[in-house]
Write a protein that binds this DNA or RNA. Sequence first.
RNA 1: GCCGGCGUAGCUUAGCGGUGGAGCACCCGGCUGUUAACCGGGCGGUCGCCGGUUCGAAUCCGGCCGCCGGCGCCA
Length: 429
Amino acid sequence: MEYCKISEALRKKEGEEVKIRGWIYRKRSSGKIAFIVVRDSTGIIQTIVEKKNVSSEEFKNARKALIESSVEIEGTIHEDERAPGGREIHVKKFNVVGFAKEFPITEYQSVEFLLDNRHLWLRSRKLTEVMKLKAKVLRLIRQWFDENDFYEVTPSVITTNAAEGGATAFEFDYFGQKAYLSQTAQMYLEALIFSLERVWSLTPSFRAEKSRTRKHLTEYWHLEAEEAWVDNEGNMKIQEELISHVCQNVVKIARSELEFLGRDIESLKQIEPPFKRIKYKDAIKKLQEKGFDIKWGDDFGAPHERALVEGEEKPIFITHFPVEAKAFYMKIAPDGKTVECADMLAPEGYGELIGGSERSEDIDSMIARLRQQGAKIENYEWYFDLRRYGSVPHSGFGLGLERLIMWLAKLDHIRDATPFPRMLRRAYP
RNA sequence: GCCGGCGUAGCUUAGCGGUGGAGCACCCGGCUGUUAACCGGGCGGUCGCCGGUUCGAAUCCGGCCGCCGGCGCCA
């Protein structure tokens, strides 16, 4: 007999024989009977080991095996209202593959202890559901790009460009020269559009900011796209279609995960283009009306972002930030004061999901802005070459994958959107 | 970087100047179609580290280390 998954076993009929394998999730036992709940990647099922139905060796092991021991079980399916899930297995063969030591994670635990034991905590229902959700979201993202003429590309994560604007990079020794862990693949993607036209990539990005918030990781998965012949408005269309595709379909293929995590399905279903577009200057006005002490030129903090999406059910775009507030590579708008950019803010205060812009083709303006930041111009010569050899209007954007997962899964901290979170004070395990 | 909080048994914690107690987990025994099972017993602590005050410090004071939350920076 082949092993079947627990989710399959739960669909079998009364009296059917099954073989399952997995890990002990919960157990209760006495001198004559043991109730052993087993989990695998698909679910949990209760199994009943009765002394009279198995060898004395097997019964002894069933009583002895602690939570998280790995087991192989053979038995008969029985419908029973008392069992979680309505079905259970009456055990005929009970084999312990690996006895577990006393599992450190029990009922109530501190955040610190759970993070120290992250490698074990990953077995929890919650993190399992988040990881499944993340895999399915990635499947949908890939699907959307495939269907919309994008090529997936694999840019490098090691770079000698100290990279964009204000962000701080992790520096390391690269055979005697200074190198950095990439903060964005953007410039590499820009190089690739001249052959592939529409490209996207998923890479780790690193930020050495000493941020202490529930929205920041030092290492995160960065989803970036770059499109030839696309302006800022076209860029926003691509973004809202991508996000809508994910929302519309994730409720179909990850319904149980979302429900377990407490995400309201209906709120995701209604997310479809177009998303509201608000100009920076109007956002400032709106914030002033709400009583914030903010003026033209200021960047938005967390409270501002929360206020701007208040009452919004879909993500919104904030466009046309002041030139000074944004990176050197963004195209300057006709007004000369703002750039052709858009930040997508998630509803419910989950913050910036996407940052995107139309890219500048004016080498002089980019050099002037780089100088202002004190950057080394010679590092960017290759980048300027892209403008010298058949430049085209183009745009692109970057999405923090864990931010998206955090919003979709209604997580209260971004660390749970990734299996081994890297943060200011944590790189272990 | 700034502000605030917390470090006592494997875990969650009470004690806040006079020889450290409980719940969970684990072990032993009993018992049960159990559901966070239950009942009885047992094991388990350099009270984060260093120094000071005191007859006496988990408790008061100083320094250090670790972690958490918020703000800032940033995606």
